[in-house]
Nucleic acid binder design. Sequence first.
DNA 1: TCATCCCGTTGAAACGGTTACATGAACTGG
DNA 2: CCAGTTCATGTAACCGTTTCAACGGGATGA
Lengths: 355, 355
Amino acid sequence: MPRRAMPEDGRPRPSTIRDVARHAGVSVATVSRILSGTYPSAPATRGKVMRAVRELDYVANAHARGLAGVRPKSVAIVVTSVVSPHYAHVAQGVQDQAVREGRLCIVGTTGGDPERELATVRLLREEHAEAVILVGNIVADDAYRRRMAGYARALAVAGSQLVLCGRPPLGDDVPAIVVEYDNTGGAYAITSHLLSAGHRRILFLGRRPGYTTPEARVAGYRAALAAHRVPHDPLLEVDGTMERHEGHRMMRERLEAGPRDFTAVFAGNDLIAAGARQALRERGLRVPDDVSLAGFDDLPPAADIDLTTVHVPHEELGRTAVRLALENATPGAAQHVMLGTHIVVRDSVRPVGQG
Amino acid sequence: MPRRAMPEDGRPRPSTIRDVARHAGVSVATVSRILSGTYPSAPATRGKVMRAVRELDYVANAHARGLAGVRPKSVAIVVTSVVSPHYAHVAQGVQDQAVREGRLCIVGTTGGDPERELATVRLLREEHAEAVILVGNIVADDAYRRRMAGYARALAVAGSQLVLCGRPPLGDDVPAIVVEYDNTGGAYAITSHLLSAGHRRILFLGRRPGYTTPEARVAGYRAALAAHRVPHDPLLEVDGTMERHEGHRMMRERLEAGPRDFTAVFAGNDLIAAGARQALRERGLRVPDDVSLAGFDDLPPAADIDLTTVHVPHEELGRTAVRLALENATPGAAQHVMLGTHIVVRDSVRPVGQG
DNA sequence: TCATCCCGTTGAAACGGTTACATGAACTGG
DNA sequence: CCAGTTCATGTAACCGTTTCAACGGGATGA
């Protein structure tokens, strides 16, 4: 049973390095150096100290350590929500790498609200984390760029490295690390896959002008059409957000609006694909017999519905973000990395006419 | 552009409360008091200080504040993995409540490894978070109980409140808050639902002796059978973990082993249900036409596959954990709360004989 | 025998806040 | 006009750790 000092109010107080020093009969400086382990010391002293540490169940006070100038061992990730599979997987990658490097991980959610993002970054500035990783799809307008530039500079002053994950770079003057993945390439590849199966009328679900991720995916879709010399019909692009119920809505409205004028569907992500598939089934249309369907992300719902989709290296995104941030000894560096994507063929696409 | 002190090495250093005091022409005590807001001050002084704070872009140093005896504004949650939907939803609830109460949230993952759990709790002890929330299914053996009792006492000394979420209580001598949900009641209700539809041979997938969550669900299943005077056949309980691929394996092996001897399936959770459903389809059996299927959790895959299941208040679990921990001014209190569950009827159960 | 060196150890000064206590100015009432 | 009171602000101690500069003492070399 560890002995601890008991102040007057009766509640025990954590043992300090002073308690350990007294218990071992040495000075606090000696204890500190022996625990940090990077300094020579007599084996006998070391033994005494370690025994005292065990007997008092001593752990260092992270705040005192942080104050004394040792960089706190923590990284932070800020996402819209942790229940969204994309963010969850990136967060898992961040976690993995953080644990591997002996760091704690702070997670903040914003619900997509810039006010909450600002408040979170403020709290993280107080915390002096080693890295602050911002994840996700955004509108890359001027206000956004200014906000990020502000974050980057403020965080650099606090000794933290800003990392943008799955977002476009801001320019060389902004000290941020950017870790992207190839949205346009993936969309190009899977659209080509549909085109190779003979589809010419491919519905795109989930356009969202201004937002970088869906825009990049639409760009890949259009580029593939152009490369195959298939005319681009703007009416085949449907606007909506990247949620399941939106996929359902977009498909339902389309089917109610008139006769079906497409043979395949490229959903902006797997959630939209799942919703669209449900709407199709509700109208008696089966995937892939009546309509071919492709998604984007390769996240859990995809396997359940046998969806051909684009694999995104979510966890590697998180791991890379942490790795680069910690490699970069001097906070405030700029760097840009793009990770690849590839298509995963399951059973949701069939050659046209073989329904 | 905020002015900041520039040490010799050329990198700016964050401005301190001293810089603000000098800039505003007051003492640091005044600045501290005005910023904490809990003390009277002259409007003129207040204005000067706030202007200095803005001009210097000052944020307090969380470590210094923590060291000076102010409880750091943070709660921690420890889960097996953040990609698992159950944990993700609980974590979301914790996040929500943490933000609402102005706290930062630290998230640790253990991958189910007690070593990593121990290391994480150690780091959190150093951090002096207000609450440490441990989530999830475990083997409640003696070693586990001792470990938790140790955590609870060590954390209480550090000023943190231990909260166990979705786990059974440990006994009144262990200072931990327990927030549970009604596994047995939910399993009882959904088994009764199947029984009311005329099913008598109900396969249970995902038994796992020793683990508290599946054990509680099996108990509810058995209790419902007994209440309806339906004989309990131990051969209808299949062992397996709570993952999708395990659901697929259990069902596949069962179907390969001999003729089908059940009309309904109660899967230990929605993931198992999703895997089992796939295995059924691979053998040409449709849900609910040929086989009725029920799950547990009401998480994303459930809606995709139209699964009748038991709703678990995941997010409320997380919110409640934070709320109770913060309400409890003195860390080291024991308390026990049980949240209710209820069934959600979709389209995966059909009266027996109406296939 | 004495100066020199090295090793292990120590005392004390940061680090950046909070807060109990001291101080002084401006009011109030007799 | 002065003692007493109130209010705003300043002074300084303290939180627990790291680290620099100094120090004691045994071994070494001259």
